[in-house]
Write a protein that binds this DNA or RNA. Structure first.
Lengths: 220, 220
DNA sequence: GTGTAGTTAAACCATATGGTTTAACCGTAA
DNA sequence: TTACGGTTAAACCATATGGTTTAACTACAC
């Protein structure tokens, strides 16, 4: 059945080395800025072999990006599948999103490049993950938990979609803007655990105080 | 003193046409993806004249980006200079940030490209604007207003830097991720006034309920 | 040994790229 | 008239680019 094949990815060992190399180069330079020659060099092989494995730059880019985003978002979503408790959901969301971003800062960079060029690959991958899969799609579950909490009077009524955007925005912003922020505000360092823990607390407090129902009834 | 010169930008009429053209092309393709030939064509001139005005692609890119970011952020910051009232500050910030982003969506795209390549230009421009200028630098003013509000008991104590990041993140996220979000959540349209007004309300409510001091003392 | 997949070096190809140079043309100011 | 800056078309240059082809070499499977 042919030579040694790694079942994991569907590519042989060399194919994987190429994907790794391509990841590094695309990450650093983006699709337009990357050079096939550079990728081959990074993988320690020559152009001929590179094209023996991947027809074109386009192909390679799509594979790299799809793999990267799929792994990240699938993992993320699995770690925050809502249990029904809104407070735990918010806390887990913030916790997991920030932890995973800090452990995979490349993902943000890939997303940045992608969005720059219209994001066709990311749209596909993320759309599939957020709405598809087995069981209750993740967004549906999130939305239900928020709705239930509002109906039961634990939180005030909020639009779940906007709450989601707010959570994501607050978590991802510091990573996205890191190259700029770290130059403008010394002390901002997205690889510093202390900073990130503080960021988590600040986000959670803002959101939780921001949505929970007030204890003593409401006044004007 | 030479031919007709537009004093506004320091470039002649042709120079401005080139800058406009370059803006369009860099916006669409990023620095690496842009072609000098394409920029010349967009400006309706030939390559020779293009290089007669701008030595290199690098030069042109720096000028375009600096101009774009300077105009946007200077305008933004002037429109939200804090008056001392924290509630008004939060409301104005959200209002102006979202309005200006929706009127200048290119800026987000430029920032995206910039951040992708490490953001050296943006870091300079934004750093200068946020901390420099006449009078009290804007971040200082923001931070003071938040601090005063906390000391006077109007809001609970919050870290002004993190509050700022949260505000920016919530406002900018939908614009940044628009190409992806619009594919994943039909109905998300950052050029739709209704959507943006709702977004503003949701952000303001979350933040304001999230930071204001509770009326009836606190409980466990 | 023969065949086959993986691999290499190197030449090759058509086209693109950023940038320069040259010669000429045009309108206006001196 | 002359001089000059803005402008053009076109050729030119060195290098880079994505991608292909060829011939040969290696290790392992049969």
């Amino acid at each position: 059945m042919g030579p040694v094949i790694e079942k994991e990815t569907g590519h042989g060992a060399t194919g994987d080395r190429i994907l790794d190399a391509a990841r590094v180069v695309f990450l650093e330079k983006g699709k337009a800025g990357a050079r096939m020659h550079g990728i081959a060099a990074q993988a320690g092989i020559n152009k001929a072999l590179l094209h023996y494995y991947f027809r074109s730059k386009e192909d390679l880019y799509r594979e790299v990006l799809t793999k990267e985003l799929t792994v990240f978002f699938r993992g993320l979503i699995e770690s925050i599948r809502p249990s029904g408790d809104i407070e735990a959901l918010v806390r887990d969301f913030i916790d997991n999103y920030i932890d995973r971003l800090s452990r995979n800062p490349q993902v943000v960079r890939f997303l940045t490049w992608e969005v720059g060029s219209g994001g066709p690959v990311a749209r596909n991958v993320i759309g599939g993950i957020v709405h598809g899969g087995e069981g209750v799609p993740i967004y549906r579950a999130f939305s239900n938990t928020v709705g239930d909490a509002a109906r039961s009077g634990r939180i005030r009524p909020v639009d779940p979609q906007h709450l989601l955007f707010s959570l994501i925005g607050m978590c991802i912003y510091v990573f996205l803007a890191a190259p700029i922020l770290s130059g403008v505000f010394p002390g901002v360092d997205t690889s510093d655990k202390t900073f990130l823990e503080k960021r988590k607390r600040e986000i959670f407090d803002l959101v939780w105080y921001g949505i929970r129902a007030e204890k003593g009834g409401n006044d004007g």
